[in-house]
Computed example of a mutant assay.
Amino acid sequence: MGAIEGIIIQLLRLYSWVVIAYILMSWFPNARESSIGQFIGSIVEPYLAPFRKIIPPLGMIDISPIVAIVALNFATYGVHALFSIF
């Protein structure tokens, strides 16, 4: 079970880095319109959409990605706790 746990945790961490890359792309003009930006957006936007419904933007600042990353970290801890039971 350790290998499965490791794979799942690494995938969750990788997805966290993809979310961070998507956030950083908003700092550069037209980065999200590039082919890589559109690909990352198609992966990240479905995950961020529920958080954006719950947490509206505060002026020009959108804190929903931060909450989404925290949720991914909690999911990582949950996977570790779930596999430590077995």
Rank of each mutant, 00 (worst) to 15 (best):
Met1Glu: 09
Gly2Pro: 03
Ala3His: 12
Ala3Lys: 13
Ala3Gly: 06
Ile4Pro: 00
Glu5Ala: 10
Glu5Tyr: 02
Glu5Val: 01
Ile7Tyr: 13
Ile7Asn: 03
Ile7Ala: 13
Ile8Ser: 06
Gln10Gly: 07
Gln10Ala: 15
Leu11Phe: 12
Leu11Thr: 07
Leu11Pro: 01
Leu12Val: 06
Ser16His: 12
Ser16Lys: 13
Ser16Ile: 11
Trp17Tyr: 15
Val19His: 03
Ile20Asn: 05
Ile20Ala: 14
Ile20Glu: 10
Tyr22Ile: 02
Ile23Met: 15
Ile23Pro: 04
Leu24Ala: 14
Met25Ser: 07
Met25His: 02
Met25Tyr: 07
Ser26Gln: 08
Trp27Lys: 01
Trp27Tyr: 15
Phe28Asn: 01
Pro29Arg: 04
Asn30Ile: 00
Arg32Glu: 12
Arg32Thr: 07
Glu33Tyr: 10
Ser34Pro: 09
Ser34Lys: 10
Ser35Phe: 10
Ser35Pro: 03
Ile36Lys: 10
Ile36Pro: 01
Ile36Ala: 14
Gly37Asn: 09
Gln38Gly: 12
Ile40His: 07
Gly41Ile: 02
Gly41Glu: 08
Ile43His: 04
Ile43Thr: 09
Ile43Trp: 10
Val44Tyr: 02
Glu45Thr: 06
Pro46Tyr: 09
Tyr47Glu: 01
Leu48Val: 10
Leu48Ser: 08
Pro50Trp: 09
Phe51Ser: 02
Ile54Gln: 00
Ile54Ala: 06
Ile54Cys: 00
Ile55Tyr: 03
Ile55Asp: 03
Pro57Met: 10
Pro57Val: 09
Leu58Arg: 10
Leu58Asn: 07
Leu58Tyr: 10
Met60His: 14
Met60Glu: 15
Ile61Tyr: 11
Ile63Met: 13
Ile63Lys: 08
Ile63Gly: 04
Ile66Lys: 01
Ile66Leu: 14
Val67Gly: 00
Ala68Phe: 07
Val70Ala: 12
Val70Arg: 00
Ala71Trp: 04
Ala71Lys: 01
Ala71Asn: 02
Leu72Thr: 04
Leu72Pro: 00
Leu72Trp: 02
Leu72Asn: 04
Asn73Trp: 11
Asn73Tyr: 12
Phe74Ala: 13
Ala75Thr: 05
Ala75Asp: 00
Ala75Val: 02
Thr76Val: 12
Thr76Tyr: 00
Tyr77Cys: 01
Gly78Ile: 05
Val79His: 08
His80Cys: 00
His80Asp: 15
Ala81Ser: 14
Ala81Asp: 14
Ala81Phe: 13
Ala81Trp: 15
Leu82Thr: 14
Leu82Glu: 09
Ser84Ala: 11
Ser84Trp: 05
Ile85Gln: 10
Ile85Val: 14
Ile85His: 06
Phe86Pro: 02
Phe86Ile: 15
